[in-house]
Write a protein that binds this DNA or RNA. Sequence first.
DNA 1: AGGTACTGTGGGAGCGCTCCCACAAGTGAT
DNA 2: ATCACTTGTGGGAGCGCTCCCACAGTACCT
Lengths: 346, 346
Amino acid sequence: MRSRSGGRPTLEEVAARAGVGRGTVSRVINGSPRVSDATRAAVEAAVAELGYVPNTAARALAANRTDAIALVVPEPETRFFAEPYFSDMLKGVGAELSDTEMQLLLIFAGSDRERRRLAQYLAAHRVDGVLLVSVHADDPLPDLLAQLEIPAVISGPRSAAETLTSVDSDNYGGGRSAVEHLLSRGRRKIAHITGRLDVYGAQRRVDGYRDALSDAGQEVDELLIETGDFTEEGGRRAMTKLLGRCPDLDAVFAGSDVMAAGARQVLREEGRRIPDDVALVGYDDSAIARHMDPPLTSVRQPIEEMGRRMIDLLLSEIADRRPAVSRGLERRQVVLATELVARASS
Amino acid sequence: MRSRSGGRPTLEEVAARAGVGRGTVSRVINGSPRVSDATRAAVEAAVAELGYVPNTAARALAANRTDAIALVVPEPETRFFAEPYFSDMLKGVGAELSDTEMQLLLIFAGSDRERRRLAQYLAAHRVDGVLLVSVHADDPLPDLLAQLEIPAVISGPRSAAETLTSVDSDNYGGGRSAVEHLLSRGRRKIAHITGRLDVYGAQRRVDGYRDALSDAGQEVDELLIETGDFTEEGGRRAMTKLLGRCPDLDAVFAGSDVMAAGARQVLREEGRRIPDDVALVGYDDSAIARHMDPPLTSVRQPIEEMGRRMIDLLLSEIADRRPAVSRGLERRQVVLATELVARASS
DNA sequence: AGGTACTGTGGGAGCGCTCCCACAAGTGAT
DNA sequence: ATCACTTGTGGGAGCGCTCCCACAGTACCT
């Protein structure tokens, strides 16, 4: 019998105050329907009077859950801040989470040291689930999560055979629409600067590019495809090579806005006017696209929406797991549509 | 007696394996010196063999601590991402925390809804301490923290009478050095675009501006001071007013690089050459400063270092609190020096 | 009247730790 | 030999919850 007038009130004190048992208070604060209205009201009054707030640690220990999920970014902080992609995704995630009790943790795992800490953290099961963004093909993290049996959702599958639940935008369709747009504008020699090909989404954009041309009855000319690496410098290099090989190209579809910016510089330096001589289309519809001169046509991904869907899926995976029921075996892969935003560059 | 071959190993199982008692294992994993070398080795072997990882919830419940601290940003996500200030601070914080067991949570409290969630979160004592950045003068958050008796460190005191432990850069000295620099370059009509004046640091920069001029024997001309709001647009507006009032000014000290960028646009539009006609100095030494045309002279704050110091102070406050000893009554206010980085704009 | 369902409620038994008291064994002074 | 410490160790008693079993009460059938 502690006479704890100082510390925070406990469940038991609320129960005493409301004249009910511990179990009943627990039911009320957890929203169980098996409580009469009168009892519920009494308990709620006691909670309010005492300013009761459940002790998360006790709850986590007893119920074996943490009510927290982690957004894991396997990149250094700097990249995270540099790319609007993450900021947008965070917005969607935050919005979807805001009517939940779940707490979001942001964890960077760019360095080896940070990755070891993360592994330790996950092993301690300090989160109920994990959101994984921007994962490369050879990253061991997804396997670690599977082994620890921690629910996880990945943004951008690592390959067509992705085993984790994933949310992605329609990179294939996005690639197609960029090319179809250029074709409809009368362009016939359309080049493509790809992203890093160990990123599955980049591959899919290439697939879309190829199929759009084939379907239009054009043969795909391999000389018109050059690999980039998502950087501005990579875009420059690729553009230079393309111009060298095919001086008569009349359009370029770049796998990202940043690469498009690099390509634009080279085109300018070579005296090609945009869009008069060469039409240019980017990907991501980032701030760069709007501020480029001329404004860049680009393929928009619904990143915020992706964040929301990831949370949806993750929460349902977590909920499914709770009663240890037979887990649905179907892999869950959500693909969201992209949208071409036409501007002056094409 | 559970035969828990499936779940995670517990302290008790480690104890059994090592042939020691529970208390001893606890001592080893908590690094207590009161354990013999032989016993320690045996326990460590058992921990390794079983892959034991302490259960954080149980520890938190028993020891009444969470081993987590929050970095609270009372701003919408967008601003957080837009300003390199936060990114740099996060880097310092992360670095200082990396050889600790402490977990860092990033919490945004821009909207009312988010603030209510945060209040709830803090009331539940889910963190051992709080790092507060970018707090405005009338923010109720510091009081809430004081009331809940949660250790907290603030970056940038709210006023000269700040009661919380704080870490700040020397805004007064920074303001002085900007003006002294301009004076030394022969400038005589030096204008100042201030930051939001409900931000204490912005006030201090103004104080530094005034004193530097007075000390140089100049009378401070109030017409040369215009209030901005830290935004680019605010910088434009302020610059326009200043030029209208004092067409013969020969230098501008802006309270932030972003405002300097706005000022530069207006100066260009009005045909003033930088630095020939008007010298320009910013504050923050952010990426903008280096990439501006011409590169911007700016006052650098050691933001990463500030992050590190904040963690130092917070950890020691948390440690102090643990045994409920008489708390040091001295307010702890750390002020770090700034440095003027001269570039072509002045 | 008896049976069969519910519904609502109380409280015991943990969850896996830390804290602390008790105690054995060793050390050195008297 | 006795006393007074110190060092290392074991384990009981919680921490504040959730889970679940037990049971009283009510309702609705036969």
